[in-house]
Amino acid sequence: MVESRLTGPVRVVGVGLLGTSIGLGLKARGLDVILADASPTHLSIAVDYGAGRLAHEGDEPQLIVVCVPPDVTARVVAAELEAFPHAIVTDVASVKLAPLHELRASGADVSRYVGTHPLAGAERGGPLSGRADLFLGRPWVIAAHDGISYQRGSAIDDLILDLGGTIVEMTPEDHDRSVALVSHVPQVISSLMARRLIDAPGAAVNLAGQGIRDVTRIAASDPQLWVQILGANAGPVAGILNQFRVDLDRLIETLEAPEAVGASRRLAEELAGGNAGVARIPGKHGLDRRYSQLVVMVDDRPGELARLFTEVGNADVNLEDLRLEHSPGAQVGFAEIAVLPERLGHLTEWLIERGWRIAG
């Protein structure tokens, strides 16, 4: 067991995916974790799952982590600050400016509060989805303000480091603008694209491949939660969507006259712009690096994927990323392997020599 940087106890309020994962991660480091939730059922599951214990009278937590929906975050934070006057309080809501404004307006003691946001999660929530390793290597924003001292805020640094997160310091304003671009607007676009499938002919949906799955994956997220998130960060989200609308209008105008002079060039520039944007997304270990892709056909039977991984390792090639796709109606899948460009030729020859079928 690795020793925690915190002394504890740590009180976690709200035992959905994030709260339960925080509890599991801290318990793995030997900390005393106190759990609280408005739902007795969720609370019972999280306790049984090993994420912490029920609260006792006289508990004096060192740190309180509020993991509740955005529309009640400020209210719960204020109640925790009042109930535990010696504790540092943080929250993990995905919007940071609105709760801080609400807390200040209510007269809460923000000298013991700072908001944070771990960029980690999944489409499915609830305590049963909790994982102790959910935050490993993930960015975790600390949205500091001038009302809290560094000494008081150090417990929050310890929390993030204990859970394996990577500390990113931002102002609440910069945080909300940033997540609007990289999280909130993608959710909207994914959901709108998925809505196109509702009335689509069955024949069209049956042709769905990895592309549409990639674009619509996050559309499976909880609508009620996203109503709250988008409402709390409406300004920055609307601003980016307005820019997106300009891009769409420009592209539609080009497609409506594909034979016009310069139309092909404009389309190419739009698509190349997407290439340039994707290239900026940090990859493995946070590196901004491009990889080469190799698509291998894998028979759909037990042990084949494991055998492919073994072959890649035996070729002395590091697998940088992996994406799987199944062929509709066929007992075969496609494994798209990302490797360093200088290792692509060697790995291709190696796999072909051992009977693997390379697509394309």
Rank of each mutant, 00 (worst) to 15 (best):
W356Q: 06
H56G: 03
P118N: 02
F135Y: 15
L17G: 09
P85L: 02
G231Q: 02
G147V: 01
R5K: 06
A260P: 13
L24R: 06
A38E: 09
A208E: 11
E336G: 01
L294K: 03
A359S: 13
V317I: 13
V332S: 12
D247N: 10
V12I: 12
L26D: 03
I156L: 05
I142P: 04
F135R: 06
V47T: 10
G130R: 10
V15R: 12
A359Q: 15
A338I: 00
A36D: 13
R343G: 00
R112D: 04
G274C: 14
G107A: 00
S149H: 06
P186M: 10
R290C: 01
P223W: 10
T254I: 14
L43W: 13
F84C: 06
R29G: 00
A93R: 10
L271A: 12
V10T: 09
L100D: 03
R323K: 11
L128D: 14
E102F: 02
G360L: 08
S191A: 15
P236T: 08
G277I: 10
V339W: 07
S178L: 12
V89Y: 09
A83L: 11
L351H: 07
V47M: 14
S264I: 05
A55V: 10
G273Q: 06
G121I: 04
V66F: 10
Q151S: 13
Y113K: 00
R307F: 04
A79D: 14
L161P: 00
P85A: 07
F135H: 08
A83I: 09
P127R: 08
V339R: 02
R290G: 11
L128W: 11
R343D: 14
G209T: 01
S183N: 14
L119N: 03
V95M: 06
D133N: 09
V185D: 08
R53H: 10
E256L: 03
V92I: 13
V77T: 05
R245E: 15
F84V: 00
R196C: 10
Y291V: 07
V141L: 01
P186E: 07
S154M: 11
N242A: 12
E270V: 03
T348W: 12
E259M: 07
V10D: 00
W226H: 07
I198Y: 14
A46M: 00
W226A: 06
L100N: 04
A279R: 14
A276W: 05
G58Y: 03
R290H: 07
